[in-house]
Design a protein around this nucleic acid. Structure first.
Lengths: 125, 125
DNA sequence: ACAATATCTGAACAATTGTTCATATGTTAA
DNA sequence: TTAACATATGAACAATTGTTCAGATATTGT
């Protein structure tokens, strides 16, 4: 009880010490839950070695079919196909099908920039 | 048995049709396994909503203590501390401890750029 | 020395992920 | 139609992940 009283006495000041202007300022500029979810999803799309290989390949050659990508990455067709679907769902790659062949390419220039920036970070560490 | 024989006959030509110049060119420029691993790890560090919130907060205010980050993100101290360790291990954030308070900040400008580029991608979709 | 504060940590758990396997779909050539 | 080819897919599996819980450190003020 005594403790509780003591806590009450200092709680206000303690909290106002912690929740200072910095925190309030950032909180005001905070984006929605959905925003951070989508942002995380975008990065997650690039967070697997198989997928970074695919993206890297598509940075060098802007159009590649599944068979080519499989040959370059060196896995099974199934694994590549599954990963391409992930990248498609995340809007990182697009494809157009001509006959039985599906030609994949990066969805837009942002992907190139994003990838290049990550590449720079890794190479300078 | 017959099938097997037939397959053998066409396997060679089929492969040479697929492994065309494009594939060879990309294969020549392929980076090491470690490189793609590290690159994926960097993106993975940003692939969780809690961590994107932390990084976003540190983009707005370049120095924040754990308590502040906890208040901003709105989780438990433990969860934040664990995520900060992850970010530290990935060299995305650094910290300097003054007394009992640990002040966290983004490790270098590449992180700002990388994050900003991801942000742009999400906002334009 | 003690209580309060700020941060960190290990274990345990459910949830998610990437690959493999077997098979399905759709297209082309014979 | 049938065989060969290019790609996609569902189920199942081990491996990884993020959070919570309980408690450990370490620093400061009294």
């Amino acid at each position: 009880m005594l403790k509780r009283f003591k806590k009450k006495k200092s709680a206000g000041t303690a909290k106002s010490f912690i929740e200072k202007d910095k925190v309030k300022a950032v909180k005001k500029k905070m984006k929605s839950e959905t925003f951070f979810h989508n942002l995380a999803e975008t990065f997650k799309a690039m967070s697997d070695p198989t997928r970074t290989k695919i993206i890297y390949a598509l940075c060098l050659e802007k159009e590649l079919c599944v068979h080519d990508i499989t040959a370059i990455v060196g896995t099974t067709n199934s694994a590549i196909s599954h990963q391409l679907r992930t990248l498609r769902n995340m809007k990182l790659v697009k494809y157009n099908k001509v006959g039985k062949i599906a030609y994949y390419s990066l969805d837009d220039i942002h992907i190139n920039n994003l990838f290049a920036e990550g590449l720079r970070h890794v190479e300078e560490k």
